[in-house]
């Protein structure tokens, strides 16, 4: 039996390989219940203007305790290098550490990343001491460049954000994994538990899921399903699956049949 393996990321050790987002939930109570059910230790959040007119309103961090979870602020919604970098600096000043999920969006409809802008922003942030986890196209060259410039991981998309389309290009992911010098975390595109297991079976180090959990009919149940799928996929990867053959190979012995 293979012992469970730890997940090394940005100099820290985690048990869970599932990172979950906190967007699109009905309320903070549901967010907390789903995050707990997912077993995730790293949780993404967004940076937005405070509500000036009603500052007494409850805050997400009242429900997701930063002492218990590694908070991973994102730069979602940023279309320029400057805005992404500003957002990361603000997030760090807010006091949840220096790990950031960098996204520089290039297109409103597909939410595909602006690759050159992402590379530029990553360079600045690495220099400033951030642990950068960039959301990026499933482009092996871009992933290689990000790893070489000092990013803590690369996070290629499997399909557009929130699309639930699953792993659309497993071959690119395989190439990225083969070349990887840093952890590869699939970010975006997972729809069902099978997609999560597939990504992990390919050998991905981790998975970031938000929409597929928050948008499910029962988000808390789906969070648990994703936790199990990630664990099953990881274990299957380490166990080593059989090769594919066109024809059958009998499972039962051919000797000793009755006549």
């Amino acid at each position: 039996m293979i012992e469970d393996d730890a997940f090394q990321l940005a100099g820290r050790t985690f048990r869970s390989r599932l990172i979950v987002g906190t967007g699109k939930y009905r309320d903070f109570a549901e967010t907390r219940a789903a995050v707990e059910a997912s077993g995730a230790e790293i949780v993404t959040v967004a940076v937005r203007r405070v509500n000036i007119t009603d500052a007494t309103r409850e805050n997400l961090l009242d429900y997701i305790d930063p002492k218990r979870y590694q908070i991973l602020p994102n730069t979602a919604g940023c279309f320029t290098v400057e805005d992404a970098v500003r957002t990361c600096r603000l997030a760090r000043e807010a006091g949840v550490g220096d790990m950031v999920k960098l996204e520089v969006i290039g297109d409103q409809q597909t939410l595909f990343p602006d690759v050159p802008a992402t590379l530029e922003a990553a360079k600045i942030l690495v220099k400033e001491g951030f642990k950068v986890l960039p959301y990026i196209t499933d482009d092996p060259v871009a992933c290689l460049k990000l790893a070489e410039m000092g990013c803590a991981a690369v996070m290629p998309l499997a399909a557009p954000i929130g699309s639930g389309m699953g792993i659309r290009n497993p071959y690119n992911l395989r190439i990225i994994l083969e070349q990887a010098k840093v952890p590869v975390i699939v970010d975006a595109g997972v729809g069902g538990a099978a997609d999560a297991a597939e990504a992990m079976e390919l050998g991905c180090d981790g998975l970031l899921i938000n929409s597929a959990i928050a948008g499910a009919r029962d988000p808390v149940a789906m969070a648990r399903a994703m936790k199990l799928a990630v664990e099953a996929g990881r274990l299957a990867y380490r166990a080593g699956r059989i090769g594919m053959k066109l024809y059958a190979t009998a499972s039962s012995p051919l000797n000793g049949l009755i006549r």
Binding site: G21, A46, R48, I71
Partner: peptide, 9 residues
């Protein structure tokens, strides 16, 4: 600009 953390993915 004064910001805080909100739900996001």
């Amino acid at each position: 600009e004064i910001v805080n953390f909100v739900g996001g993915g």
